[in-house]
Amino acid sequence: MNANLRRHWLLQGIVSLGECGIFFVAVLGALPKSLRYWRELCRQVWFVGAMSLVIVMVCGLFVGMVLALQLYYTLSIFGGTAALGTVVALSLFRELGPVVTALLVAGRAGTAVTAEIGLMRATDQLDAMSMMAVDPLAYVASPRFLAGVIAMPLLECVFNAMGIFGGHLVGVSWLGLDNGTFWGNMTSTVTLHGDVLDGLYKSIVFGGVVSLIAVFQGYTAPPTSEGVAYSTTRTVVFSSIVILAFDFVMTAFMT
């Protein structure tokens, strides 16, 4: 019985994965047509990007501050506090920036996108568009997908900037580290190609993954209040797992 259930559960997972793959291809296919709806794309970039700025900035600041505190303590054991700026920057650029930004966007914008599309499905708005000969994939799904891909790396840059600012606040203003040492070591060690761009590539991939999951979950949400609620939850759960899994795979290839 359990084996049957597990097989069923596995089958369901594989079927969903296949459906998501087909949906991804359809969304990509609708991308050229969706560029006609550039206003909608701008609106979505505003919604995913600008509306997530506050949470990304605040979280970036605190992550940078905590990083600086923890690393200062660890580095002081080995007498290497001069490297604080470098280590904070590397941690942010290579790992924490892309990953935490993606998790935050999945929680704030991803859930909203899923709920919005799910409700559009439940209230026949997607069918109405289709009946008015407007492809909902091109008008609704593709702009939201593209908006995530565009907004995520921009948000990651803001997160990193705020994180470094937070690290500077703690390291230099509070713990008394030399300002020149903090910036000098950082700029001489962190490279554009190896560190900054690698983080940006991750962010672009995470942006695509989070948007795809959010849009797919909304598009396929059962047209009930419970169905939309479950789909919204699934967006956060699946996005979080996939972000961390992709992060491992990409890090393994990049290092």
Binding site: T123, Q125, M129
Partner: peptide, 9 residues
């Protein structure tokens, strides 16, 4: 004309 109007909210 949809049964539940289906206006774009």
């Amino acid at each position: 004309l949809f049964q539940n109007s289906a206006l774009l909210t």
